[in-house]
Amino acid sequence: MQADRSTMWPGLPAWGALALCAALWLSPAQAADAPGEQAPAGGEIAPTAAADPELEKEVMELSHVLRCLVCQNQSIAESNAPLALDLRNQVREQLQAGRSKDDVIDYLVERYGDFVLYEPPFKTSTALLWGGPALLLFGGAGWLAWRLRRRAVELRETVALSATERAQARSLLAGDPAQPPSSPEESRK
C-alpha cells in the first residue's frame, strides 16, 4: 500500500545524515585549514618573535587553535588584525613566563568566552553540536535498516499469490476462457 511510496525515499535520510555530518564535522577544520589571504604571521607586521624556536613553535601551535575575534574565520596565527597580534604576544609572553598551554587557553576563555576556541568544548549547550552528527548518522542508518527489513516483509505479503489467485493463473495459462478475469488484485501499477 504505502510501500511503493516510501520506496521512493529510502535514500534520503541517509543522504541527509551524510550531508549534515559533512557540514557539522568538517567545517571548523576546513575553516582552520583554509589558506589565509593575508601573509602568514611572523611577517613584518609581527616583528616580535621569541628567540627560542621551541617556544615559537608552541606559540604558533596554540595560536592556530584560537580564533581571532575580529576576522572570525581566521585563527590568531593567521590573522593580521591588531587584536590577533596582541593576543599572539599575550600567548608568547605567558608561555615564556612558564605558564602551561591550558593556563593560556583559560586566560583567553575567561576574557573572550568559548568563542575564542576553534574547537567548542563539550557542554550541555554544545551536546547537540557534538552528538548531532552521530545521532543523525546512526538514526538514519537504523531507520534505513528497519525500513528495508519491513519492505522485504511487505513485498513477500503483497507480491506472493494466494491459493485462489494461483489456481486462477493456472487456469488462465491453461487457456481456459470460461473463467472471467476476476477483480483486479491490488492495482499496484
Binding site: 572570525q72 575567561e110 576574557r111 573572550y112 568566552g113
Partner: peptide
C-alpha cells in the same frame, strides 16, 4: 555573529 557574548 559580530556580537560575541562576553563571559565577563
Amino acid at each position: 555573529p559580530r556580537e560575541v557574548p562576553s563571559p565577563l
